[in-house]
């Protein structure tokens, strides 16, 4: 390519400018096309509680040291059982909140007496690590009112959620950011 000296510079420059313009149009237009025609809005990650098998991967595969997935409680579905299988061991020694009777390894479930024979169970989200042990207990014997959800003020909403990559039951889905939870609903 030693014709450098004989070729007028403007020709090369013009070609470069044309290519540059095409490139710019391509990148900008492509991105705009992908964004524009279908704008259901931003998406965030969430767990479909119907598909979740509470395998425990949520507790350990999150990029956060303390997972963004935590247990939530749909109170309207709860039976307010005296013997809650999400709170107590499958065969509790006694129905007290002593450590030997309690299922949750981090003690994140709070049991409160409401009135005979009802007890209220709430999740202390500071302690919950999303292991799903109580979810299994509640789903197996009870109403399934305890289940795992991504807590969105913790979730970084990674490009591809690293828990989703490790989810065995394809329970992780992208949902509209405007309605970022998949609540089990009482209708």
């Amino acid at each position: 390519m030693s014709d450098h000296e004989t070729t007028p510079i403007p020709r090369r420059g013009f070609m470069r400018a044309a290519a540059r313009a095409a490139c710019a149009l391509g990148i900008g237009g492509g991105a705009a096309y992908l964004v524009a025609p279908r704008t259901p809005g931003e998406r965030v990650w969430q767990i479909d509680p119907e598909k979740c098998i509470a395998c425990g991967n949520c507790a350990t595969y999150c990029v956060l040291r303390e997972s963004a997935v935590k247990c939530v409680h749909s109170f309207a579905m709860c039976g307010y059982c005296e013997l809650c299988t999400g709170f107590f061991n499958p065969s509790p020694n006694d129905l007290t909140t002593a450590a030997e009777n309690v299922l949750c390894p981090t003690g994140a479930i709070v049991r409160r007496f409401v009135e005979d024979p009802y007890f209220e169970y709430t999740i202390d989200q500071n302690l919950c690590i999303g292991c799903g042990k109580c979810v299994k207990g509640c789903k197996m014997f009870g109403n399934g009112s305890l289940y795992l959800q991504v807590i969105h003020d913790r979730c970084l909403n990674c490009n591809q959620c690293s828990i989703a990559a490790a989810c065995p039951s394809e329970a992780w889905v992208r949902v509209p950011a405007a309605r970022p939870h998949l609540w089990k609903k009482v209708t």
Partner: peptide
């Protein structure tokens, strides 16, 4: 797997 300890398994 989840690499959680035995106390985390619902047995």
């Amino acid at each position: 797997g989840n690499r959680l300890g035995r106390d985390f398994a619902y047995e």
